[in-house]
């Protein structure tokens, strides 16, 4: 047994002739906040897509809690406890805020199509439980007053919060956040930092991609830096800030 929740082993991904991820080996520690940073186009989102099954690796392996997960479908990967958010927020705009989170309880409930058709929601205990659990999440994210609002009409900051609440409703072991602070103002960014800290306290490992360096250095336990799809440095925030290779990559060396 290791202390890593996720291990990338010589991971590669080519799109046609373009190498997006090249021979990347990286471990994500359990119960910590890890960050992935790098210039635009370095392959960060591609790595998230590979881990969550939205893209298939061209080579190498991905292990989650000592279980090989490459080749699995996105919904199956969610099923073993990895949830994620998206760089361009992907809420369900046609549903209310509460319903969005209730979708997040999908994997923690069981009703099938026939059963759902026959029994009305008020007679279903499971439905009641889903609603209560979703309300708890709403409370945690302090979004209660929006419960019945169509999610599409929320401001962007709240949409990002909602997306995280929905991902947390899954009770994941590992939560991937793709640029959680992008598009947020300074106050919202601070709130986001606090929220990510709280998520860690809930014993959920967090791995995030982020461009806001203040946020990253502030909240992360570990930081990995990639460029051109390859790892150039990893360590604690303090180590990274001193690393000459990182400085040259970022300052355009």
């Amino acid at each position: 047994m290791t202390n890593n929740i996720l291990e990338l082993d010589h991971l590669r991904k080519n799109f046609g002739g373009v190498v997006a991820v090249s021979d990347l080996s990286l471990n994500i520690a359990k119960g910590a906040i890890s960050s992935l940073i790098g210039p635009n186009g370095a392959g960060k989102t591609t790595i998230f897509n590979l881990v969550t099954g939205f893209a298939q690796p061209s080579g190498g392996h991905i292990n989650f809690s000592d279980r090989r997960i490459n080749g699995m479908k996105p919904h199956a990967i969610a099923g073993i406890g990895i949830s994620r958010t998206f760089q361009n927020v992907q809420i369900f705009p046609n549903m209310s805020v509460l319903e969005n989170i209730m979708v997040g309880r999908y994997l923690r409930s069981r009703a099938g199509m026939l059963y759902s058709c026959i029994f009305p929601p008020i007679l279903r205990n499971e439905e009641k439980r889903i609603r209560e659990d979703a309300e708890k999440q709403l409370h945690f994210l302090e979004l209660e007053q929006y419960a019945d609002t169509p999610a599409g009409s929320l401001p962007l900051g709240n949409q990002r919060m909602l997306e995280i609440a929905r991902a947390l409703a899954l009770e994941p072991g590992l939560l991937l956040l793709d640029e959680p602070a992008s598009g947020l103002n300074a106050r919202e960014t601070i709130a986001m930092g606090e929220l990510i800290g709280k998520i860690k306290e809930m014993n959920v490992s967090v791995w995030l991609v982020e461009h806001d360096m203040d946020l990253v250095m502030d909240i992360s336990d570990y930081v990995a830096v990639i460029n051109f799809g390859g790892l150039i440095a990893q360590g604690t925030p303090a180590e990274i800030q001193r690393n000459p290779e990182v400085i040259s990559a970022y300052l355009g060396g």
Binding site: T52, G53, F54, K73, P74, H75, A78, S83, R84, F86, Q90, I91, F92, P93, N94, M95, E99, M102, V103, G104, R105, Y106, L107, S109, R110, A111, G112, M113, S116, E126, E127, I130, E163, R166, A167, L170
Partner: peptide, 19 residues
């Protein structure tokens, strides 16, 4: 649960799969 899943995939297939 099933109906919400259906409406969810209408809104965003990727997000639905990620849940």
């Amino acid at each position: 649960r099933v109906g919400r899943g259906l409406r969810a995939l209408h809104g965003s297939e990727d997000a639905a799969a990620s849940l």
